[in-house]
Computed example of a mutant assay.
Amino acid sequence: MERIALISDVHGNLTALEAVLADIDARGITRILNLGDYVGKGPRGREVIEICRERCEVNILGNWDDFLPDPARTFDSEGLAWWLAQLGDGQGDWLRSLPFCHDLLVSGRRVRLFHASATSVHRRVRFDHDEAEFLGMFANTPATGDGPVPDVVGYGDTHDPFYEVSGDNLTLFNTGSVGNSMNDPTPVYVILEGVIGSEAAAPFSVQFVRVPYDVEAEIAAATRLGMPELDGYVSELRDGVYRGAMHDPHRRTYHRLPR
């Protein structure tokens, strides 16, 4: 049996990332896979990229990693321009070159990991999806390639962790977010346990881990660096209230809102 840590959606929150990595290290887990969205929302995307390049065995493309450093795009948003300028030399190119997905065998199960959906990093599938959306997560597409169809799919993007089994022994889970967790703002990651690389059936588990961290230290860092959209970041980190809903008490449920 071996354990792999799956992290996602750090979003420039270095303080949360360091706390999660410390928890992973304390458990003796040495393999870490990252499901994307290293940058944006938080102030230290450059540092997050540096650490993830060093610590993560696999790094996968996220939607922010694709659109923020896109040379064909221009931004009139102060926040987007600031987060882009915060990146180090070559980091934007590195982000946009990341693979779309990663496949592996665990205890006889074919596991596929990607950021948001089987078709695009920009197509969102929430926990309240319909059956067609559920089944579509297991399909081969031009984005995933034509490898063996997975039995298990893990993804991030929605900042809203869940675990679901349906269909013909199909398992879908969402890792939640390390750096920008909604509703419950405590960072969350997943431990995948089983016999890695084995085609034979064996015990298999998906464990969700919440890791408390120093929220005020992260807010202080964002303040010190002069990050725009600070009020929205504070709302998300302290209360788990999405920045687009922080002034509207009737729209506080994150999973019903756009990004």
Rank of each mutant, 00 (worst) to 15 (best):
P249R: 13
G145C: 10
V39H: 00
V121L: 01
G12S: 09
W64C: 14
L237C: 07
D66E: 15
E199I: 09
I191H: 03
E54I: 03
D248H: 10
V10K: 00
V188K: 12
S177Y: 01
S166M: 13
Y163S: 06
I51N: 02
G88D: 09
A16W: 05
L68F: 07
M227I: 07
L17I: 09
E218M: 06
R109V: 07
V149P: 04
M137E: 06
V153C: 03
D128R: 13
L225R: 07
G136Q: 03
N183S: 13
G136R: 01
N174P: 05
Q86M: 11
P228G: 07
V152H: 05
D146F: 05
G226Y: 07
D214P: 00
V209A: 08
A85Q: 12
G154N: 08
T74Y: 03
F100G: 02
T186I: 14
D214F: 01
T15E: 15
S8I: 10
R251L: 15
L17N: 02
L113F: 06
R252I: 14
V206P: 03
L80N: 13
I51L: 15
D160Y: 13
D157N: 14
D76F: 09
Q91T: 03
G136M: 01
A245C: 14
E229N: 14
P212E: 10
V48W: 06
A85C: 06
N59G: 00
D146C: 05
L80W: 11
G79M: 13
A221G: 01
G226E: 04
V48T: 14
F204N: 05
D89Y: 07
G28R: 03
P258E: 13
W94N: 03
